[in-house]
Design a protein around this nucleic acid. Structure first.
Lengths: 337, 337
DNA sequence: CTGAAAGCGCTTACAG
DNA sequence: CTGAAAGCGCTTACAG
């Protein structure tokens, strides 16, 4: 491996001068700069990050922390988009991503502390799959730049999340404007904060019409399509079944569609269905699923930008909300009368 | 942040001695060792990896390279298991995992070169989503430890893969032993080498019975369940439909099951179905899917062990094959006569 | 504009 | 068993 000293020797200059062109700083004569650049190109020299990091007190690596208590969440195609968004920004900043997938939140937090203390990472993005409370201590001990993708309630983490509330609100507004009044909701037993927000959107939309959320019309799943199918069957088996079902994620919505098909209930004529997320499968379903799009890429992109702002010492806004969007496709129509 | 010098000062010894206990090496008196250990515990000192790496010429980080040309593959729950297997071993060796997800294989390879040259990683595990050819050059330039999860045909990479051939063979043996003779195959347009191997298993099993692979009974999908559904419909709509269908991955097998249900063909009475992978959804389907289990965790675990063997300078076996296993569940039965 | 020197925080022979 | 010294490969003031 070529070192900066070798490059300096070949170019007949001091390593300090080479360092200047490496970090493109001024005060280097045009000729020397050109010469050095040629030598660098010829030798294919790339500065050693660990040596560089030792003097700059940076590792140029950040951690991506994913406490994967639930495989379900990791299986979400949404996450991939999010990671892509993060990576894109990271590349721009010449940063690399360390992946750490601890089991429990406490483990994740202590792993994070180790990574920070041992200078392996300069900061971290934490995916809120569950409780982020343990990370509060991490932040107190180290004032390391950290941002959460999620709500990060009760922590001092910078939080980035999608507009779950607004998305649910517009989905319900749409169903109500189509004329639906008996709207079934497929919620979940596990209630991450994002889900609470979606439920809040549901309630507010109903209240705006003087309606309230009928407990009878709520069925519980676990985010999987199988559980959505069971929930759909339960809702549709009622004496007075809903004319529309809003499933709080796409996989469950797809399960609802399967339940309807088995019961020979046609969509959207006899039943409207709306999901949440806009996973790739949503647009490929028959009929294509009307859903609330959650922009995974934008989430990752924004989170990464906040992280790098913190790393640069600038102070980003404390919380960012990424807009969601209702995508009307083929599973929604006015109710039969 | 505490440094080794501070610890040394507090313990009244030289940094060299602290270094010895840090790397638990001999020639330190019991009392000094105890004293130093106490100081370390009190201060919560953790040695800086970048400083350590600078003298040891190691980063204690390896790359996990995922050229994600196809989202489909990344969406595979299988991959998560694999990563878990890798991480488990990495933790044991005090190594961390850098995640790099380039778009094209050539990009992935050049990203890998940069990471290697800049001392960011000591080696890498490459996921074979597509062509690994570009990595051959990487290996030639740097003799860095690299292992591929896949077949890595025509490269010098150490390759780890599941026994796709054997798995397909046993699935077909099983169907044939049940008495099936018209067996439909759901293959794919895209044909990674793993799929070729599964097809080879299919052919060999048939030939052993004096049968051959009837082109009429092959339908093509793209690994998704939607495509499996279409493929299933196509196969079952034939004048003389198959009595069993072997889908070359689970998601397509689940699609086949949906197609059968819509056509009112009961499983396993009128149609047997076998998948490949054993993703979580497989056992939750109704009826639960008979499939060939591909042990993701073992794949990751083995790949990581090979990588660390290479890093330690020992020479691991050039290729490892992870056994697959036929899991008989509820979708297979003898054909009606 | 240029370079000598010190320093980042460890480890590794080498004397003692 | 113990520690002084040099070195890993960069960067950063500081003189010139």
């Amino acid at each position: 491996m070529t070192t900066i000293d070798e490059v300096a020797q070949l170019a007949g200059v001091s390593p300090a001068t080479v360092s200047k062109v490496l970090n493109n700083r001024p005060y280097v004569s045009a000729e020397k700069r050109a010469l050095i650049e040629r030598v660098i190109a010829e030798t294919g020299f790339v500065p050693s990050q660990r040596a560089r990091g030792l003097s700059k007190r940076r590792s140029y690596i950040f951690g991506m922390l994913i406490p994967y208590t639930s495989n379900q969440l990791f299986a979400d195609p949404h996450l991939l988009e999010c990671i892509r968004g993060i990576e894109d920004v990271a590349n721009t900043h010449d940063y690399n991503m360390l992946l750490s997938t601890a089991r429990a939140p406490a483990e994740a937090a202590s792993a994070c502390v180790r990574l920070l203390r041992s200078d392996v990472i300069d900061g971290a993005i934490v995916l809120e799959t569950i409780d982020l409370q343990p990370f509060t201590e991490v932040l107190q001990q180290h004032d390391a730049p950290m941002v959460a993708i999620g709500y990060a309630q009760g922590t001092a983490l910078h939080a980035i999340h999608a507009d779950d509330y607004g998305g649910a609100l517009s989905a319900m507004h749409y169903l109500l404007s189509l004329g639906h009044r008996r709207i079934g909701i497929v919620s979940s037993v596990l209630r991450p904060f994002a889900l609470e927000e979606r439920l809040r959107g549901v309630r507010v939309a109903l209240e705006a019409r003087g309606l309230c959320l009928n407990e009878q019309l709520i069925a519980l799943g676990d985010f999987s399509s199988i559980s959505g199918e069971a929930a759909g069957r339960a809702l549709l088996a009622q004496p007075e079944p809903p004319t529309a079902i809003f499933a709080l994620n796409d996989r469950m919505a797809i399960g609802v569609m399967r339940a309807a098909r088995e019961l020979n209930i046609s969509i959207p004529e006899q039943l409207s269905v709306i999901g949440f997320d806009d996973i790739p499968t949503a647009s490929m379903a028959t009929p294509p699923l009307t859903t609330v799009r959650q922009p995974g890429f934008a989430l990752g992109d924004t989170a990464a930008n906040v992280l790098f702002a913190l790393l640069d010492g600038s102070m980003p806004p404390p919380a960012a909300v990424i807009p969601t969007e209702l995508i009307v496709r083929g599973t929604t129509a006015p109710p039969l009368h």
